[in-house]
């Protein structure tokens, strides 16, 4: 009952944020200097020809009208057509979403697989060399730009060792083996860079647990420090880590776009960059809108995941005491 209310409230926030984002995206893309009609016709075109093409594409209409027609289209699942080639924006997006989604998914999972154990050790051994080493490595990792890290991995694993392909992409259904092989280096690059950021949060979340009374209680009944942390620390640390992870999702997406261009993956990143260069505004708007949708959906899920992780919040939601 109250749980339903909380979900409804969260959905409301989600819809309002999405509307606000759509307006902002529209205004910003339209503030871009340059004009797709000019791009299409080339620099030699007469102003008359450009004006005629603008009218043909509907670009001469007042901005509010353009915005509403775009928004209305989105509501019925029509993101418009590319000005350049007339292909529906969704048709352009779909295969690229898959690429970026795999990259982000494996990048996130990989970063957690690195950051959680490393952060736990860094917390537990924070006064001795394993802790110092991990913290120093994380600091160093944060200072490394994504593209440089990616190029380094390509040099080592593709150019020298010939273990993995240097770039490109093969769809999953076409050849799963090649698909995986092409994703390893990009995903590892993204994971390493993200892990460097996450380790610090994981470390401080677990240091907090180490100072908690329940951790001492766990030790007093016979758990060794590491097992006490695994048993009673992970879920408690997760409460604060999930928040960080929700905030990090947008950084991961930005990172994914950079990684895509290093490894020439045909994902949303390269689509977005090409569309911006060609002033193909509907494609830009559609892509950014999708990215915003993904980030907002994930942060809504993060918010609801507290109910699964923290029994105190779950009871508060059941009793209607909680605030969203």
């Amino acid at each position: 009952m109250h749980l339903a209310l909380r979900i409804a409230r969260r959905t409301g926030v989600f819809v309002v944020s999405l509307l606000g984002a759509s307006l902002l995206i529209f205004l910003l893309t339209n503030a871009l200097p340059g004009d797709v009609a000019q791009v299409l016709l080339g620099t030699d075109a007469t102003p008359e020809a450009v004006a005629q093409l603008r009218a043909q594409l509907g670009l001469d209409r007042p901005l509010p009208v353009q915005y509403l027609s775009w928004l209305g289209g989105i509501l019925v699942g029509d993101f418009g057509h590319s000005h350049l080639n007339g292909i529906p924006v969704l048709t352009l997006l779909a295969p690229r979403i898959a690429v970026t989604m795999w990259l982000v998914l494996f990048g996130l999972i990989g970063s957690l697989l690195i950051a959680i154990p490393a952060g736990m050790v860094a917390a537990l051994k924070r006064r001795s060399w394993p802790g110092f080493t991990i913290s120093a490595a994380a600091q160093l990792g944060m200072a490394v730009p994504v593209f440089w890290g990616g190029i380094l991995l390509v040099l080592i694993f593709a150019v020298w060792l010939h273990w993995l392909p240097a770039n490109g992409y093969v769809p999953l259904l076409k050849d799963p083996g090649q698909w995986a092989a092409h994703l390893v280096l990009p995903a590892v690059t993204l994971a390493l860079v993200q892990a460097a950021v996450l380790i610090r949060y994981v470390r401080s979340a677990f240091i907090e647990v180490l100072n908690e009374d329940y951790y001492r209680t766990a030790r007093s009944i016979g758990w060794t420090p590491m097992r006490a942390l695994l048993r009673h620390g992970i879920r408690n640390a997760a409460i604060s880590l999930v928040t960080v992870l929700g905030l990090q999702v947008s950084t991961v997406l930005v990172g994914a776009i950079v990684v895509e261009s290093v490894f020439t993956l045909p994902g949303l990143g390269s689509l977005l960059l090409t569309a911006v260069n060609q002033r193909d505004l509907l494609v830009v708007q559609g892509t950014v809108m999708f990215l915003v949708l993904a980030v907002l959906a994930i942060s809504a899920l993060v918010d609801l995941s507290y109910l699964l992780i923290d029994p105190r919040q779950a009871s508060a939601a059941e009793q209607g005491e909680g605030s969203a």
Binding site: E212, T217, S220, I221, T224, H232, R235
Partner: peptide, 28 residues
């Protein structure tokens, strides 16, 4: 060593702490 102590704790010797509000894991 920690491992030897862990074996004694909860078995030969146990402890009741001062602060009941925080002594238990809130998520279990």
């Amino acid at each position: 060593p920690e491992v030897a102590l862990a074996r004694l704790r909860g078995d030969a010797v146990s402890m009741v702490f001062q602060e009941p509000m925080t002594a238990l894991d809130p998520t279990m």
